[in-house]
Design a binder for these strands. Structure first.
Length: 490
RNA sequence: CGGGAUGUAGCGCAGCCCGGUAGCGCGCUUCGUUCGGGACGAAGAGGCCGCAAGUUCGAAUCUUGUCAUCCCGACCA
């Protein structure tokens, strides 16, 4: 059923390499799984960054920046948090190199050992909460609504480009509130922001839900998430928003005087999305011709390809295309005029398709003569010749239509691979074929782990918008109040 | 860290079993013909065959070690 679009070489190498490559660090280096994001790939990230940043600001947040290095002692404070990250931290132990006394090159200067090791941030909760202690004294200082755009390092055992790299780019929001209700509302609000972004910008339908205790973020009281289905039927967690309760405030001793003049710990949230979203985008929409980008985050919305034979034609056609480019840019569109003389039109068509450009405008002598242009859309590969008079409107319509169509297609795909299952056999079949299974679960971690062990399916989330319904656990047969979402995941 | 596989030109790979001067496709360079869907012909450039030791007159090929990568587990956004 589901087409497999993976990060395997044989399937993606040609176009995928335009976006990203695995970093080739020093020979024999233990640093593995770092990625180089190439300019075209980075441009896509920038569009995500800009759109999200606007949404954060529209919801009252501001940006700040905290240090890359975190003293080791900070990690000893919140027990479950440190446990969650301890196994994947890069540790700085020295601060100086010196010339190798026994040969060429440099060695670590043993004299320059740090008294306290520094941890390269795997996430910034600890250093931010240490800082918040000094910022927060009174209820008048609250709420603090701060976001940070940064890189983080997690020393994963096994890496995969975009989905799980040793270093990745992300944003992390860290907020502090006077009341539990306000913090909870913030965590929910940011989940909605992510869902809105995924669906309206990335054309990626998502399911909002709550993580089970087992899948919860280390140190959180409640973890909300959005889950998306990729084209092979597997689930990808596209974003998380955590209600941290007072855990970090207690660990870092962040207290404020409330209106009743009583000392109280603050309530917290944190939320983040990463360059993993690019992986989601690729795996959700791409086809055998390469990348397919939703117009709203396509670095190039329209590419113009001229077609000509003779020199006379060339000049005419180039002038014609130049006019089209100007007209489209005047309308605020992101346009690329591919006037390279070194490639043939057919080559250019294929190349821009590979890069996912939503709309292609081609024009040759025939079009100049008839005052037309040829418009091709990336998602369906349909072509149409239209009069140049209304070409702007046609293109706006096309861009809208592509954006909507990509979402619709992804949604229909997800729906046709999502099943409500009531027997263990059905459950296993759905999971094996790759798909989402809504099933009853008895609410215990023990059952969750056993299901994982036997089927590789993980409990993706307890959906927020699911109706309550009495039933029996798919595995244990114990009573259950609602269905939860199971799937194989990346 | 366990199990499996791989490492040869920028990319994708053959050659290894059975040792004897390094091959193919794509890409790249030059010239010509082409140009409305990845053009064709001719001529070129490009390799410490992952690294190290060993066996041998001789190693991409055999042996040992080592490093790295990929896949499957455990871990994770």
């Amino acid at each position: 059923m589901a087409k497999e679009i993976t990060t395997r070489k044989e399937n993606y190498s040609q176009w995928y390499n335009d976006l990203v490559t695995k970093a080739e660090l020093a020979e024999n280096s233990a640093v593995r799984g770092c990625m180089v994001i190439k300019p075209y790939g980075y441009a896509i990230w920038e569009f995500m960054h800009d759109a999200l940043d606007k949404m954060f600001k529209a919801t009252g947040h501001v940006n700040a920046y905290f240090p890359l290095f975190i003293p080791k002692s900070f990690f000893s404070r919140e027990a479950s948090h440190v446990e969650g990250f301890a196994k994947e931290c890069a540790v700085v132990t020295h601060y100086r190199l010196k010339k190798n006394p026994d040969g060429p090159g440099v060695v670590v200067d043993p004299e320059a050992k740090l008294e306290e090791e520094l941890i390269v941030r795997p996430t910034s909760e600890t250093i931010i909460w240490d800082t918040y202690r000094n910022w927060i004294k009174s209820y008048r200082d609250l709420p603090i609504l701060v976001n940070q755009w940064a890189n983080v390092v997690r020393w994963e055992m096994r890496t995969r480009l975009f989905l799980r790299t040793a270093e990745f780019l992300w944003q992390e929001g860290h907020t502090a509130h006077a009341t539990k209700e306000e913090a909870m509302a913030e965590a929910r609000k940011m989940l909605d922001v992510y869902a809105d972004f995924a669906e309206n910008y990335l054309a990626l339908p998502v399911i909002r839900g709550i993580k089970s205790a087992n899948e919860r973020f280390a140190g959180a009281v409640e973890t909300f998430c959005i889950e998306a289905m990729m084209q092979d039927g597997k689930a990808l967690q596209a974003g998380t928003s955590h209600f941290l309760g007072q855990n970090f405030a207690k660990a870092f001793d962040v207290k404020f005087l409330n209106k009743e003049n009583k000392l109280e710990h603050v309530w917290a949230t944190s939320w983040g999305v990463s360059t993993r979203l690019m992986g989601a985008l690729i795996m959700a929409h791409s086809d055998d011709n390469g990348l397919v980008l939703p117009p709203k985050i396509a670095p190039i919305e329209v590419v113009i390809v001229p077609i000509y034979k003779t020199d006379d034609q060339k000049q005419q056609v180039l002038d014609y295309c130049q006019t089209m480019k100007q007209r489209l840019e005047n309308k605020g569109l992101r346009v690329k005029f591919d006037d390279r003389d070194t490639q043939k039109p057919g080559f250019k068509f294929a190349e821009w398709e590979m890069k996912g450009v939503p709309v292609r405008l081609a024009a040759g002598p025939r079009d100049v003569e008839n005052a037309t242009v040829e418009l091709a859309r990336r998602d369906t590969m349909e072509k149409n010749v239209v009069s140049e008079e209304n070409m702007e409107n046609h293109i706006f319509d096309l861009l809208d239509d592509i954006q909507n169509n990509l979402f619709k297609k992804a949604l229909e795909f997800r729906q046709s691979n999502t099943f409500r299952v009531d027997t263990w056999d059905e459950f296993k079949t759905v999971i094996e074929n790759g798909g989402f299974a809504y099933a009853h679960w008895d609410g215990t971690t023990e059952t969750e782990l056993k299901i994982k062990e036997e089927t590789k399916a993980t409990l993706r989330c307890i959906p927020l918008d699911d109706d309550l319904e009495d039933g029996k656990c798919i595995y244990s047969g114990n009573p259950s109040k609602r269905r939860v979402l199971f799937a194989k995941a990346y």
